[in-house]
Design a protein around this nucleic acid. Structure first.
Lengths: 237, 237
DNA sequence: AAATTTAATATGTAATACTTATTTATTTAT
DNA sequence: ATAAATAAATAAGTATTACATATTAAATTT
């Protein structure tokens, strides 16, 4: 067991301590979104530190989306968005290619496993929306239109899951998709007519039909085959 | 199309602008992890703002894990951890129950879909580790030991996926698991001997055997049945 | 040449003053 | 008396200055 995780406790900066203190304060106080916090000067005085230091600690909470501040209203607790920060990281384009690919792979894993949840909430499913997307797709002529319909269809599947967090995850990843798509399209036909092992590829319409009349097991298998082209790209190392 | 997303551009604070400016600076400069940044005073002078404002913008980057600062070494670009911020959010216990449940559901979805990736990298799979965990589990007498082995087994499956990001996701969620476990155990036997529809439950050993001799499709189905007890808890609204 | 001490450096913290947006209170006009 | 316009108060945002602290680099001593 490495000791690395213990060491930093020693040389915690003032602001680090303030942050911990405030976090404890929030937990103890059982704050709910919308609740207001004491003003900066009060916090500074109460903790015996400068407003500067308090502000930096609060800035961290603001960055994480835990609090919001407005000019005269002071600070309020806000309901943080679990994927907001991750989205900002993606925006910096600072993540290495391996991580990007792993995130993309995570998307594949989720889509294959998503069927169970969709079937669970099937009665809410609005199949007509999927139908319309498919019709638009079948009329599409350009590659760009196809990509757009493809993204739309899969987005709709996430929506049918009824899981807002999973939906949020997908929305966050849309830019990543485009990034990976751009790399894939150079070497590969993303929309082949036939599968790699001479089996017919699973189309969006097949998936819709399975959603209507099939079961989760069939859906998982079909989704796996539908995403075949991407799985083929994955590293096996 | 809502205009909400456009409006904030108007009343951007000084620091917001600085943040955008710096982010652009990083992108243009094509900075790599390890590269050092100009010192705060230089940035302040170059942008014609106070060091205070610069520091707050930099504080945001630090919070996101984009940069690291040390006393005299200045600031360096760092390789951000995609789930670090989310982990910190979970720590605040500020997320509502619905979100927590959705995150837990996301875990189920991933585990069902995970088989494909595991089979993809099967040759690397260290089945003996799974075997040992199962043996320990079969000898377990207390509920606590069972839970521990359960978590260990599933953690190992994530490891076998070879996807460090997915592994990181699971590690981040371990505390959530405990939270949800605590709620489940009151009403439900988490480790029933028989399934709900009189089918025998799928054990960890069954899963291991399928990993050894089966195929991804079988694995997905077995995992789905193995997680049955959790799926039964999910809302169908 | 090695070890110790000193100086320089860049971030961390503090204190103070001022700016700005927003709310609340007051005044004014109808 | 009610509504509109104005003024005051408030709390966060920004700026400036000074100093503390930790770390690196330079200089001194042994």
């Amino acid at each position: 067991m490495s000791l690395e995780k213990l060491r930093p406790v020693e040389h915690l900066s003032q602001v680090d301590k303030i942050e911990m203190s405030l976090q404890e304060y929030l937990r103890i106080g059982n704050f709910q979104p919308g609740d207001s916090l004491p003003k900066e000067t009060e916090l500074a005085e109460a903790m015996g530190v400068s407003r500067t230091a308090i502000r930096e600690a609060l800035s961290r909470f603001r960055t994480l989306g835990i609090i919001e501040t407005r000019k005269n209203r002071g600070m309020i607790i806000s309901q943080p968005d679990v994927f907001n920060n991750m989205e900002r990281l993606l925006d910096t384009q600072l993540l290495d290619d391996e991580t990007m690919n792993e995130i993309f792979e995570m998307r594949l894993v989720i889509e294959v496993g998503l069927g169970d949840v969709i079937f669970l909430r099937k009665h809410k499913a609005d199949f007509s929306k999927l139908e319309k997307i498919i019709e638009k797709e079948e009329k599409a002529t350009t590659q760009m239109e196809l990509v757009k319909c493809d993204i739309e269809f899969h987005s709709m599947l996430y929506n049918l899951s009824g899981n807002r967090t999973i939906m949020r995850f997908q929305k966050m990843l849309l830019p990543v998709f485009e990034h990976v798509y751009a790399n894939l399209k150079e070497n590969t036909d993303v929309y082949p007519k036939n599968g790699y092992d001479n089996t017919k590829v699973v189309t969006h319409r097949d998936l819709l039909n399975t959603l209507k009349d099939g079961d989760p097991e069939q859906f998982r298998n079909q989704m796996r085959r539908h995403l075949m082209v991407y799985f083929k790209q994955l590293s096996t190392d």
